[in-house]
Design a protein around this nucleic acid. Structure first.
Lengths: 195, 195
DNA sequence: ATGATGAACAATCAACAAAATGTTCAGTTT
DNA sequence: AAACTGAACATTTTGTTGATTGTTCATCAT
């Protein structure tokens, strides 16, 4: 690892520490630079903007979410059960963030707002997991075949948007969300079954 | 009709004119009063607040939307076809509002934000139409029976939230929304079919 | 030549005062 | 007594100004 990459990492670490403690908007570039004993201007030799540091931070923490989703996909049980569990886990995770990790949630929202491509990329990654479960379901004779599993996954995402972004609806009742997710997944599940 | 109700109507008319032309937030109570050649304070003898005038205006225009939904429900064709058409018509209507009637859209958003009960009531009314179509589908042997059709309708609403409130996702591509709605309705439709 | 600085620049934010607006109600008019 | 007014009140919005923050870049240091 060369020195430039090392400094990038140090910046990321220092910034991440502040983002998680003070939040994205309350963290200033000059504070980050000061923590690292360098000038504010120097930061821009490593990252084009404050938002790029935020995105890099989010990227560096994707593996946590990916691991979470991967765990569900490779767990035992039928594809149908896993599909439900997948959405349950995502809802619980999102809700936990909203409830307990406000600074991280704030960071995620800032990125989503300013970097729609990032949010879309996350959705695309999630679809990969969905497709894997759909494939499993087809292989075990549970689900109907479909010309494009990626498109099917996209439709599942459209149908579950309310549970992915509950904050957009000012919907902060986890008990209600759970009930609704269960009912919605029932409907989707039946729509996937082999006839 | 007594004189008080007549004045209420006149207020509603004058306010509605301004809401639709200047938007809700740019319309002042003193302007409305001036249009009617009365004092600002007098308005409060007829309506408790500005927001109540807005809500009354929306109420007075519900019949347009209700008629639209009713027309789909009573139109010919199978329940499945009507269900798709219902959601298509709502999406097109919403999109048209966003695109062409910005002031009316702004008014609807102000009410939704401040009067959640109003938005929930609209959803409940919509469910009545959904239930009617579900009943038809069951009667014609197309759809599976269900213990509570109102709950089922609620789940359909959860699954189609993205198309009811596209503005929440900064999603203003009608071609994409149409495609997604079609795919999502496919999935929901299959979930409703009798096995 | 490469790496780093810190002042300048541009944009945004915060504080505050003034203005505007929604609402109330004592007083006036009908 | 009922209907209406318009000033007062409370709240919100707007405009101004100075401070802060993100970013750039000429200059300096290595």
């Amino acid at each position: 690892m060369d020195e430039k990459a090392e400094t990038r990492d140090r910046i990321l670490e220092a910034a991440g520490r502040r983002f998680e403690h003070y939040g994205y908007s309350k963290t200033t570039m000059s504070e980050i630079a000061s923590d690292l004993k360098m000038s504010t201007g120097n930061l821009y030799r490593f990252y084009p903007s404050k938002l790029d540091i935020a995105e890099a931070h989010a990227l560096a923490h994707e593996c946590d979410e990916d691991a979470m989703m991967e765990a569900v996909v490779v767990s035992g049980g039928s594809a149908g059960t896993r599909l439900r569990e997948f959405h349950r886990v995502i809802l619980e995770h999102t809700f936990k963030l909203i409830d307990e990790s406000k600074k991280i949630f704030e960071l995620a929202q800032a990125i989503s707002r300013e970097r729609p491509a990032y949010a879309n990329r996350r959705l695309a990654i999630e679809r990969v997991y969905l497709v894997r479960m759909l494939e499993d379901g087809i292989a075990e004779g549970l689900f109907e075949r479909h010309e494009s599993l990626d498109e099917l996954a996209e439709m599942i995402q459209c149908a579950t948007m309310k549970f992915r972004y509950p904050q957009l609806y000012n919907c902060f009742r986890i008990d209600m969300l759970r009930r609704e997710l269960e009912g919605t997944m029932d409907l989707i599940y039946k729509g996937l079954l082999k006839r």
